[in-house]
Structures are given as structure tokens and as C-alpha cells.
């Protein structure tokens, strides 16, 4: 471990915190890569990133359960109040009230069954997941329910992948050994990524009929 990391740890900066900070650009790059090269975008870089970090706080299994419950309760609440014709912000507030109530119930149930692991989860990672509801509803209005579900699944996959990377012991060890190398490496990679103008993998699938047609016409 280099002197810099040792100095920080000895001065009282938690080792996990250093790892989490250094992982941030790496995970952000992963999400950017999946957007530009693969074509999987989820609800954007911020949502996927923050949910990945929420998963770090809750654990993956608990995190996915909370993720699903937040979404389901938010959507049900929205369906329930649809006929009241409320303005946007009060409507969102009602939806969030439904989400809060569900989380409240969740803790009661966990207490009843003595799920001590679950009860140890702090509120913050749960609150972080709430903007997801707004994103989900927005996507539903704009692109329809099917697209909204696709985007949600994409976000969940991206966040879970990011979680696995954040909690990957070998990589954490590596970046603690080379803390200052992370920044230039990620910067260079992203500049190259930002200049990429080729087709995304999903586009190769989307345009398959057209590509087949081009192939046929070239043969003639």
C-alpha cells in the first residue's frame, strides 16, 4: 500500500470510504461504456450510480427487494390517485407518501419476524431510491409502460453490476495500491469513449434487417 493511502488511513479516514470514493469514477465509466458501446442506458448515469451505492448500504438482496417495493408502491399509488386530477407536485407528494408508508410497513414486518439484518439498514440508502419513482413515472408518460419497464430493468442490471464492481475485493485492493492512477486512467478512457461514433451493439440488432438488405444488394 503506498504512503498516501497509509497516511490517510492512519489519520482516521476509513479505508472503505477511500475505496468507495475511488470506485465512483470507475463505476461512472462502466455506465458510460454500457450506454455508448452497448446501448443500455437505464434512467441515466446518476440514477444507476446512486442506486448502486444504495445497494452497497443495504446489501444486494435487500436492495433489490426495496427497489421493487418502492417502484410497485409508487406505481399503485399513482394509479389510485389518477382520477383526482392533481397538479404535478402535489401528485408526486402523494405518490411519495405511498412509498414512505410502504417502507414503514416493511420495517414493521421486519421487526415482527426479527429480521435483525434488515433492521440495521439505515434510512439513507432507502431514501436515495425514491427519485426512481419519479423517473419511472416520467418514462411511463413519455414512452409508455413497456419502455418504462425496460428502462427499469436496465437500471437494475446496471446498478447490480456496479455493485459487484464496487464490492470486488481484488479491484478495491488494486485501486488502494494505485489511488492516483485511477484518475488519469479513467479520464483517458472516457475521452476516447466520448469520441466513439460507431454503432452501438443494440443498434446492430435494431438495424439487422437493413444490414441484411445491404448485404444482399452488395452480392448482386
Amino acid at each position: 500500500m503506498p504512503e498516501l493511502t497509509q497516511y490517510m488511513i492512519l489519520s482516521g479516514v476509513p479505508k472503505e470510504l477511500i475505496g468507495l470514493i475511488l470506485m465512483l469514477p470507475i463505476v461512472a465509466t462502466l455506465i458510460a461504456f454500457s450506454r455508448e458501446i452497448i446501448g443500455v442506458k437505464g434512467f441515466g448515469i446518476y440514477t444507476s450510480l446512486i442506486i448502486a451505492y444504495a445497494f452497497v448500504g443495504t446489501g444486494l438482496a435487500n436492495g433489490v427487494v426495496i427497489f421493487a417495493l418502492v417502484l410497485i408502491s409508487g406505481t399503485l399509488m399513482r394509479l389510485f390517485i389518477r382520477h383526482f386530477r392533481l397538479l404535478y407536485l402535489p401528485r408526486m407528494a402523494v405518490v411519495l407518501t405511498g412509498v414512505a408508508f410502504t417502507i414503514f410497513l416493511m420495517f414493521i414486518v421486519a421487526a415482527f419476524y426479527h429480521q435483525t439484518e434488515f433492521l440495521k439498514i439505515s434510512l439513507f440508502p432507502i431514501i436515495i431510491m425514491i427519485p426512481l419513482v419519479e423517473k419511472f413515472i416520467g418514462a411511463q408518460i413519455e414512452r409508455g409502460p413497456q419502455a418504462a419497464i425496460t428502462l427499469t430493468v436496465e437500471t437494475l442490471v446496471l446498478a447490480s453490476l456496479s455493485y459487484l464492481i464496487i464490492t470486488w475485493g481484488w479491484l478495491t485492493g488494486l485501486i488502494l495500491d494505485w489511488p492516483l492512477a485511477v484518475f488519469p486512467a479513467v479520464l483517458i478512457f472516457n475521452v476516447l469513449l466520448g469520441k466513439w461514433t460507431g454503432l452501438r451493439l443494440t443498434e446492430l440488432v435494431r438495424f439487422r434487417e437493413l444490414i441484411k438488405y445491404v448485404e444482399l444488394s452488395n452480392k448482386q
Binding site: 461514433t197 460507431g198 454503432l199 444490414i211 445491404v214 448485404e215
Partner: peptide, 23 residues
């Protein structure tokens, strides 16, 4: 595996990345 031929034939197609960067 995506065959090389497939990639070659996709060259003239405009993707989102190229649309935003070049046009």
C-alpha cells in the same frame, strides 16, 4: 460472435453516436 461481414455491411448506417457527434 458477430461476423466481420455483418460489421462491414453496417458501416453506412447512422447510429445515435455518429448522429450526435458528426451531424
Amino acid at each position: 460472435a458477430i461476423p466481420l461481414n455483418y460489421l462491414l455491411n453496417s458501416r453506412g448506417i447512422l447510429g445515435i453516436n455518429a448522429r450526435n457527434q458528426h451531424y
